[in-house]
Nucleic acid binder design. Structure first.
Lengths: 364, 364
DNA sequence: TAATTTAACGCAATCGGTTGCATAAATATT
DNA sequence: AATATTTATGCAACCGATTGCGTTAAATTA
């Protein structure tokens, strides 16, 4: 159990210790203060700070120096109110503490920051209801753009309407909707599923199982399609018993599924798991039962999570350019201009993935 | 290599397809629109929406219904400007795509969201310079509170001054400064280091190495102190050769360090690593050399990263309540009131950790 | 030299809520 | 019934930056 307690420590000295008991916060410096100090109008100060062309370089220099000297800091709320935009990118994802997601956010934040944009995050926890209320909060902040990876539950898309009506650029990443005219950044899940399955076939697998995710989410549906087509094209009969539909592709679900498969009279000799967590659990579970990997059972996962390279035997998997995906999504928003954006067109960016072969399929 | 390409797809139909070619964005509804519609003053609308006590329940109901009907959404920029606060919590951390950090952020976001606060994140990438400029951006957004885990480089603390001067609550988490009168949320690194080391001693280790992090960061300094004191209290001589100082505690550094240790004429029989990444690398590296774990070499890590339970043998480690840490940090900000906050007092919350014993130290 | 252009800056409205103070109407008190 | 309270609402200033339009003085051109 993790408990906690509080210590109060009185310091005699320290940084910024105040003399007066009831110290007032320092008044914030505004452009009006600068204006008064330099005998300019606030307009001139504002323009000077923004390097407006109608302000002389001499004045600009003077203003900026004074601003620095007085510790002036712009109030982005005021500017945002006036311009009706906040230079902020909003993100809605399921949960942040997953390797794939946090990498993507890292990519978004990096590109956004370089362009002077802030990033607000919100977690849906894979609940539709949370996604809806989070989007409202993001809208209320007048974000300049929205990046979304859909919650597992989301089917109805009405909550995106306000953003579209206001011309706020909307980018779906990874878990995207169908038939929605917005930016999308995805990987080619179909090909990835096909290639993962074909990899197992190439390694001599004859009975290949699939750990499938929720089929109303494009990523899992397409991976499964790729799996099915790879089987068909190689004249391997599809056995519905070998296709397990997961709810969350968790470790526990993976163990259950593996146990179930291994109990079959005619168990599989290969597994293509739609994520690494379940794939790793399959490795551990099969090993425990004394099944040799990859000789008796070859396994390939998806995402290239850190755990996939640590498990033994290391899990073959499909790479997933999460950080790049985030960077591109952010760029879509930064480069978006309502003028040149055609509302009847979807711009889809498809990133390619590749097989990362490791020991779990290393045979023949 | 990961390449990418763009597909442009023309849709004939779809959601929200516009009729006119040059659709204007819909005008946003403001409280003035509601006022006009209901024949009230904007003040009344504002108060009604905020459940002000001087507005009759009947009016409140009417206003809210109309707001819902017309799709009114508050503009938090305007409110924030007026009130000089934004109901937003700013976060500054090294990188988001690390398990420990993203769990903490997840905790922050969850608590913040429930209180109607937004969360802005910024990554320093462990660079002092980035931390400084990120804090400026957060300040400019007039965040209501700031949660910081210091970058590896940060020594000078002047960039926190503006927040303190403005009475903006500041919470340091995990990697905290010394002698700074603010909120802090940490774990008891000293005890954790002590207990981890003592655990190895209890398991019969006589020569215990330590993978130490940068010593100007409290967390690593204290873990090392705990390590040293545990040795001393058990009459084990400290051998400087066995203490490796890391720069980033990365996998690669871990391998190098392990190799170096194992080449010693008198190699260690136990390692206490200040994080799991390096600890896992030690396991893999030692195994490759045919060293038996835990019999010949027992290893314990820190953080309870997912990889620690996957590696074989599984890595013993110290739990780290990252999510709880985030929740508490957020609560500190939410509960902060400038009235009752004494500037000459540090409020430090210390969370306890515990040993998670796994196979890598499971002997005797 | 007169006329015109250009450069540099100021005025004042605006963005959308919030809030202290004033006011009018309704209710309570004596 | 006259006065004192309470209730419900409006007025107008304010938060800090931005920007269209106007103005003045200097520079350029005819």
């Amino acid at each position: 159990m993790v408990g906690w307690f509080i210590i109060r420590i009185d310091h005699q000295a320290g940084y910024f210790v105040t003399k007066e008991k009831d110290l007032q916060v320092k008044k914030e410096i505004t452009i009006y203060d600068l204006a008064k100090e330099l005998n300019y109008s606030p307009s001139t100060i504002s323009r000077a700070l923004n390097n407006h062309k109608s302000i002389s370089p001499k004045t600009i220099k003077k203003v900026k120096e004074q601003a620095e000297k007085m510790g002036y800091r712009p109030n982005t709320l005021a500017a945002g109110l006036r311009n009706n935009k906040s230079n902020t990118i909003g993100i809605s994802i399921s949960r942040i503490n997953r390797h794939f997601i946090s990498s993507m956010i890292s990519g978004i934040e990096e590109t956004a920051r370089k362009a002077g944009f802030n990033v607000i995050i919100s977690q849906s926890d894979d609940k539709y209801e949370n996604e809806v209320s989070n989007l409202k909060a993001l809208y209320d902040s007048r974000i300049s753009g929205l990046i979304v990876s859909l919650s597992m539950e989301t089917v109805n898309m009405d909550h995106f309407k306000p953003f579209i009506n206001q011309g706020i650029p909307l980018v779906f990443v990874d878990r995207v909707p169908q038939g929605f005219n917005t930016y999308k950044v995805v990987i080619d899940n179909y090909s990835a599923g096909y290639n993962a399955t074909k990899h197992l076939i190439d390694k001599g697998c004859k009975r290949i199982a699939h750990f499938a995710g929720a089929q109303h989410r494009n990523v899992y549906e397409e991976r499964k399609k790729g799996y099915l087509d790879a089987l068909k094209e190689h004249q391997i009969p599809v056995d519905e018993q070998l296709i397990i539909h997961f709810k969350t592709l968790s470790f526990e679900e993976g163990e259950k599924a593996t146990n179930k498969l291994l109990k079959l009279p005619n168990p599989p000799d290969g597994i293509f798991s739609a994520n690494d967590t379940a794939g790793v659990s399959a490795i551990l579970c099969a090993k425990k039962k004394g099944i040799k990997i990859p000789e008796e059972l070859a396994i390939i996962g998806f995402n290239d999570d850190p755990i996939s390279s640590i498990v033994e035997p290391a899990l073959s998997t499909m790479s997933h350019p999460a950080m790049k995906m985030g960077k591109i999504a952010a760029k879509r928003i930064l480069n978006h201009s309502s003028k040149n954006h055609d509302e009847e067109v979807s711009e889809i960016t498809v990133l390619s993935t590749e097989i990362i072969q490791r020991a779990s399929t290393d045979r023949k």
